Amino acid sequence: MPTPNPAALDFLLTRRSRPAKTLAEPVPDRATLETLLTAAARTPDHGKLEPWRFIVLGKGAMPRLATAVQARGEALGLDAEQITKGRNQFDQGHLAVAVIEMQKPSEKTPALEQTYSVGAVCLALLNAALAAGWGANWLSGWPSHDRGFMQSELGLEAHERIAGLIHIGTETSTPPDRPRPDMSKITTWVDT
């Protein structure tokens, strides 16, 4: 018989991301964040390729990134609403971790499996922060997918991309739970 961990299962059954705009200071200190990053890196990783890395964006970087998003959005000809939405997470952010996907050549582990692993790292970091009592949210948005922004502001190489920005801070309000999937509609049981 397996040894259950009821607290962990209860956490997973009730976990809820916190809107990034509701996160405030204080944020985790470096030692605490290193623990959360260590937990995130314990994700399934076929071939032990580690097709990810982390860029920690502290409060001091947020104004520069917000200004860069504004300039990049204007250069791309985006409308004011898109630009504002893109820069808000930096204007309102206090700490975020950019999870960077970096594909590794492998005959045994297809690129798609590496992408899945990077997504698992994002979720593992989000859950580690929530389990540690912090508020956290996984965001992306157009700046996260814009090659110019990735290269000029975060120094990403051509083979790298942002998988997600995990914002972490102190929760200021508890959001209502959202509707959850109807398991009977998304589950198929195959016994033979």
Rank of each mutant, 00 (worst) to 15 (best):
M150G: 14
L130K: 08
G141W: 03
F149K: 05
S173V: 11
S144M: 10
G135I: 08
H159Q: 14
G164D: 08
P176S: 13
H159R: 14
L139A: 13
P175W: 03
L139D: 08
T174H: 10
L139T: 13
F149P: 03
I168G: 01
F149S: 06
F149G: 02
P175A: 15
A124N: 15
S140P: 00
D177M: 11
A128R: 01
L130G: 07
L156Y: 01
E160T: 04
R180S: 12
L154Q: 01
R180H: 12
R180T: 13
I168N: 04
R161L: 11
A163V: 03
A158D: 15
S144Q: 03
D182G: 06
L139E: 14
R147K: 14
S173W: 05
L154H: 01
A129P: 02
W138R: 11
A124E: 03
R180C: 03
L165P: 02
H159S: 14
T170M: 04
H145L: 11
I166K: 01
S144V: 02
G169I: 04
E153R: 02
Q151E: 15
P179A: 13
A124M: 05
G133C: 07
I162E: 00
E157I: 00
W138F: 10
T174A: 12
I168F: 08
E171L: 14
M150W: 05
G155C: 07
P175L: 11
A129I: 10
P181V: 11
E160G: 03
W134T: 02
W138E: 09
H159F: 02
A131S: 14
P175V: 06
G141Q: 09
I168S: 03
A124K: 05
G148F: 08
M150R: 12
H159N: 14
A128V: 02
P176K: 12
T172P: 04
A124Y: 05
L123W: 11
T172I: 06
M150N: 15
G148V: 12
M183A: 13
P175E: 13
S173G: 05
I166A: 00
